[in-house]
């Protein structure tokens, strides 16, 4: 059995390492800094070349670093390798997925995204849960299942990799919206309307990008959003709440204490939706709140004042 490779020793990277150990695998974990994990089965390395013998290789770094890491790592890889990223980002004005970025910067083609209601703490502790792998290549999902799956972690698969990644990114935005709405006093009904509409928006933008609509109602979309709203400690929720309390973006991000991918995504997503003529009121409202163009008094009112029609 080849060891499971992991790039990034943040909370998620470590959680994946623990899950892989529980599944009976050895692990090669890349970290730029020394790590003490107290497990002989986890080999910590500071040279990406050491990951070439691993399958699959998880990339657990914030989305802004995925391209750079992919390029550096790619110099040691070829067509046999399998890469799986766990980031929630979409890149550039054209909202390119990170799978695509990895395919562009490295020779690896068999790439996938691990998404869904999966949080670092639950992964590390082995709490029951599930996730979804989006990849056009069936062997990627099979490898992820063999790497970290087990009786407490159900790994589903979808060949609609694009849909999984777009859904996952948009759930981050929706979670900000939920945190925000809660902070400004929205009740369950208003929240329910907002998150449902946000998912419709996500599906509309996603299909425009080439994703399948049904993916948004699966684990990567609806399932993940349910976990976020039920309070799985998602940093996006905390950011939204801080914004709702009138704090500016920098202060809100600091409170969340993590890199929140969705903050940079909101504006680009709203621009894209406008460009392709897809109505996206929730996204554009979040974007305007983040840009400081809309205050707490008016944000919810702006959403509620829109014309209503068929669902």
């Amino acid at each position: 059995m080849k060891p499971v490779g992991i790039v990034g020793a943040g909370a998620f990277g470590k959680g994946l390492a623990r899950a892989a150990r529980r599944a009976g695998n050895s692990v090669v974990l890349f970290s730029r800094f020394p790590q003490e994990l107290g497990d002989a089965g986890i080999e910590v390395v500071d040279d990406l070349a050491a990951l070439t013998r691993s399958a699959p290789i998880f990339i657990a770094v914030p989305s802004i670093f995925v391209g750079e890491v992919g390029r550096e790592l790619g110099a040691h890889l070829d067509g046999r390798h399998l890469l799986v990223h766990v980031s929630r980002g979409l890149v550039g004005a054209e909202l390119r997925t990170l799978s695509r970025v990895l395919r562009e910067v490295s020779p690896v083609r068999r790439v996938g995204a691990l998404a869904g209601p999966l949080d670092a703490a639950a992964l590390a502790e082995g709490l029951p849960g599930g996730a979804i792998v989006g990849s056009a290549f069936p062997e990627v999902a099979a490898a992820v299942r063999a790497a970290i799956g087990g009786s407490s972690l159900r790994i589903y698969e979808s060949s609609d990799s694009l849909g999984v990644e777009v859904a996952s990114a948009i759930v981050g935005l929706a979670a900000i919206a939920v945190g925000y709405a809660r902070a400004v006093g929205a009740g369950p009904s208003a929240l329910a309307v907002m998150v449902t509409r946000a998912m419709h928006e996500a599906a509309a933008v996603g299909t425009e990008l080439g994703a399948k609509r049904e993916t948004f109602w699966g684990l990567a979309g609806l399932g993940d959003l349910v976990a976020a709203t039920l309070g799985d400690g998602r940093p996006e929720l905390a950011v939204g709440e801080a914004l709702g309390q009138g704090k500016d973006v920098e202060a809100a991000a600091k409170i969340a204490g993590a890199n929140v991918e969705s903050l940079g995504l909101a504006g680009r997503m709203a621009d894209y939706a406008q460009r392709v003529s897809v109505p996206a009121p929730v996204t554009s409202t979040v974007a305007r709140v983040i840009a400081g163009e809309l205050d707490t008094q008016h944000a919810l009112a702006a959403l509620m004042a829109r014309d209503v029609g068929k669902e």
Binding site: R71, G74, A75, D78, G79, E104, V105, S106, P107
Partner: peptide, 8 residues
């Protein structure tokens, strides 16, 4: 590869 290395 994107870096210009030859691969099989």
């Amino acid at each position: 590869t994107p870096e210009g290395h030859a691969i099989d």
